[in-house]
Design a protein around this nucleic acid. Structure first.
Lengths: 143, 143
DNA sequence: CCTGCTGTAACAGCCTCTATTACAGTCGAA
DNA sequence: TTCGACTGTAATAGAGGCTGTTACAGCAGG
């Protein structure tokens, strides 16, 4: 499957907001963010909507509208972003119910669910170790 | 994105082969496996093809054909299966190249690649801790 | 040679993701 | 109060992946 880029887009947005804030720009519009990410402003607004529902950004409406971080970048970790934009579990179960007369078909799903849950926890723990401030710092070092 | 069920299907197949072998049945056809997974035999053959290319199962052609495990179930871990059937990385990068004149657009991709790599390593380590023998044992306990 | 099964192509249906257009809603500023 | 800029979201389109299905050539034991 072709992996989606939601997490990448969202982290990019937040990193850009963090840099703008540090430079003294309090608010950015979706058009301004879209210019950095190089995609359509609606894509950005949809992602920002997810981030707003998760409490990571705040929006100001009307004239002079725009977006800003709801917390300092040190207190936003990539796990927060992951939860904000990714809904589905990593691994899917059978599309059709397995044959319950077969001992494997009958019992395998909870076993797999357990293993998949542990694997996701390991992934989440790793995503919790990096903050937007970390990403911003390393990004500026690279360039 | 709706997660695919490739890993689930492949683990189901291998667990079923392990149980059949323990019961004295050396070879299973794709039709027999499909009856347990409850899907089309071609789906099973496609998955078995991935597993064969990864060296996890062996196939016998001609009359009396069928499949069997290439190693004992204790020596096949879910990470082997994951590598056999999943190709794409977990998180995708930008579809279009970000704006390189923006400092974030210019430097964020290697930073994200590094974080994503670490997260995948954590996931893989966890998948390496469970074998087909573990799955079979727990599956039979459940039922 | 026959037969049963593999290996794979081709296709359809469904769904997701990205991208884009359009437009109503919102609210500060003039 | 009106204007204008921007948000929020619906609708739509194209591309591509996954599952499921049919079809058929290839293989090899009996």
């Amino acid at each position: 499957m072709a992996a989606n880029s939601r997490l990448t887009i969202a982290v990019h947005i937040l990193t850009w907001l963090a840099l703008a804030h540090r430079r003294g720009t309090e608010l950015l519009t979706s058009d301004e963010v879209a210019a950095s990410v190089n995609t359509n402003p609606v894509i950005i607004r949809r992602s920002l909507g997810d981030l707003r529902r998760a409490g990571l950004v705040t929006v100001r409406h009307g004239a002079g509208a725009g977006w800003s971080l709801a917390r300092v970048p040190e207190e936003i970790v990539l796990l927060d972003v992951y939860d904000a934009v990714e809904g589905e579990p990593l691994f899917g179960m059978h599309h059709t119910e397995p044959n319950l007369e077969c001992p494997v078909g009958k019992g395998i799903r909870p076993v797999l669910g357990d293993v998949y849950g542990k694997a996701e926890l390991a992934l989440r723990a790793e995503l919790g170790r990096t903050s937007i401030a970390d990403v911003l710092r390393e990004t500026l070092q690279v360039s």
